Structures are given as structure tokens and as C-alpha cells.
Computed example of a mutant assay.
Amino acid sequence: MLYRVEGIVIRSFDYGEGNKIITLYTQTHGKIGVMARGAKKLKSRHAAITQLFTYGEFVFYKTGQLGSLNDGEILEAHYQLREDLHLAAYASYLVEMVDKMVSDNEASEFLFEQLKSALKALQESKDPQIILRLFEMKMLSFSGVAPVLDACVNCGREGPPPFSLSPGLGGLLCAACRSRDPKSIQAGEGTVKLLKLLQQLDLRRLGKIGVKEETKAQLKQFLRAYMDAHAGVHLRSLHFLDQMDKYDI
């Protein structure tokens, strides 16, 4: 069967002497694996469109598990994301989340648009930390394990502050219930409000957001631990992100 789909290259690896196998995240068919014959060769007409992070229209035949690329048109090359070390690390984390947390053929037009918008936002030099936190929230919601942020996850009380965040228990803890999780993270009211905003905000509408470094650190600490506890995936791209932070690369 011949397919013509819009997709984003979320994984690409060499296969044999001159071929590549790419994984596309598509708007209509979810994740699809496609063989691009001869794509490793510099003069190949498939060389550019099979690059990681490329957004394009792909035409391929598929009769079994793996499609065979016939043609394609680049809609957005995202070459800046590959040429800049920092941007490449951030973008790799975004696409690896989709690769590891979305099942084959599990389509979501909304998630496709969120990934496309996240890559575009990185390219437009918007705050990468906010983009990553936003996309993590979208992936958690997509996976059905979004944190509880509108009331205490233990007793249901809606306030007042101070609050703490429990990755293990799944969300917000009021002051009275904080002892339920000694490892909970003390969070300022601004951090909790921003988390709620990130849960609701569409990446297509992301503008310039000024966030204190302390708040960014709390967001990262909570969502990193929450992903570890509830997403059930190991992401290799996190190692390089941590190295960048550690050594200020």
C-alpha cells in the first residue's frame, strides 16, 4: 500500500552499506519505520529528508512491518537543531520521549502538533528549559499519568500554601500531608502555579516566558523525578543533558 504522510524523523540509523532506517512520528498513523535505500550517500535524493528532526511529507510503500521510502518533500529541515550542540541535545530528548513513550501506530494529531511546535520553539531560541518542561507535561498527559495539581493527592484539600510536590505519590501535597512523603519537594506558590499553567498551555501558543532560575530548578527536579517514577522509560539523551548542566558545556 502507498502512504503519503506528514511526519517528523524521530530516529535515524545506518543500515548496511548505504541505507538508513528512519522512524517517523506521523500526524495520522503514529510511529512508522521506513527503509530509505541509498540515503547514506551524499548525492542521494533521500539524504536530506532522512536527517533527524526533519519535518516533511513522506511517500512510502508498506506491505509489512517496515515501509520503503519512495519520495519526500522537506517542509522544515531544522538544520539549526543538528548544528548546535545544545539545541541538538534538547531536541534529542524531545524526540526520544516520543520514540520511547508512544506505541507503534498510536496516532495523536495533538501530540504531533506539540512535537512540531516544540522543535520550532527551540529553533526560535525560546527558553529550552520551559520547552522541555512543557513537553514533559504533554507526554505525561498523553500517557495517562499526569500529576495531580489541583488538590492534595493524599487528602483532597485544595489549600492553602505552603505546598510540596511528591513525585512518588503523584502530585501536590498540602502542609498537613507532607509527612506522607519525606522525599517530597518543597515548592513555592509560583512553582505550583507554573506547573498548572504548563499542564494546560498549548505549545503552539508559547510566547516568551520569564521564569526565575530557582523556579526552573524546582520544575526540573520535580518533573525529572516524576518521569522516573511514572513514565517507566530510560532515556539515553538525559545523560548528555546532565553532562551539559554539570560541566556547563
Rank of each mutant, 00 (worst) to 15 (best):
Y3K: 02
V5Q: 03
G7Y: 00
I8A: 04
I10Y: 08
S12M: 06
E17W: 00
K20P: 08
K20M: 09
L24V: 04
Y25P: 12
K31G: 13
K31L: 03
K31R: 09
I32F: 00
G33E: 09
G33W: 01
G33H: 09
M35H: 10
G38H: 03
G38Q: 03
K40P: 12
K40N: 09
K43D: 15
A48P: 05
I49Q: 10
I49N: 06
F53R: 02
F53S: 08
G56C: 03
F58K: 00
V59D: 07
V59E: 12
Y61R: 08
K62N: 03
G64S: 13
Q65P: 00
Q65W: 00
Q65H: 04
S68N: 15
D71I: 00
E73I: 07
I74P: 07
I74F: 11
A77C: 01
A77T: 01
D84N: 15
L85F: 15
L87D: 11
A88I: 02
Y90Q: 06
A91R: 08
A91G: 10
S92A: 15
Y93N: 11
V95G: 11
E96V: 10
V98N: 08
K100F: 05
S103K: 14
N105I: 05
N105C: 09
A107N: 07
F112W: 01
Q114G: 09
S117L: 04
A118R: 00
A118G: 05
L119V: 05
K120S: 14
A121R: 03
Q123F: 04
S125M: 07
D127H: 07
P128W: 03
I130N: 03
I131L: 09
F135A: 08
L140R: 01
S143R: 11
S143I: 06
G144Y: 03
G144A: 04
A146G: 10
A146M: 05
D150E: 14
A151R: 15
C155R: 02
C155W: 00
G156F: 05
G156D: 07
P162D: 13
L165Y: 04
P167R: 04
L169V: 09
L169S: 08
L173T: 14
C174N: 09
R180N: 13
R180S: 11
R180G: 06
P182Q: 07
P182G: 02
K183V: 07
I185G: 05
A187E: 10
E189H: 02
T191E: 08
V192I: 15
L194H: 04
L197T: 13
Q199H: 11
L201Y: 02
L201I: 09
D202M: 01
D202L: 01
L206S: 05
L206N: 08
G207S: 10
G210C: 10
V211L: 09
K212G: 13
K212E: 14
E213D: 14
E213K: 12
T215C: 07
K216V: 12
L219I: 14
L219D: 12
Q221R: 11
Q221Y: 02
F222V: 15
F222S: 14
R224K: 13
A225D: 11
Y226A: 08
D228P: 01
A229D: 11
A229P: 01
H230I: 13
G232Y: 06
G232A: 09
V233D: 14
R236P: 03
F240N: 03
F240H: 05
D248N: 13
I249C: 09
I249D: 04
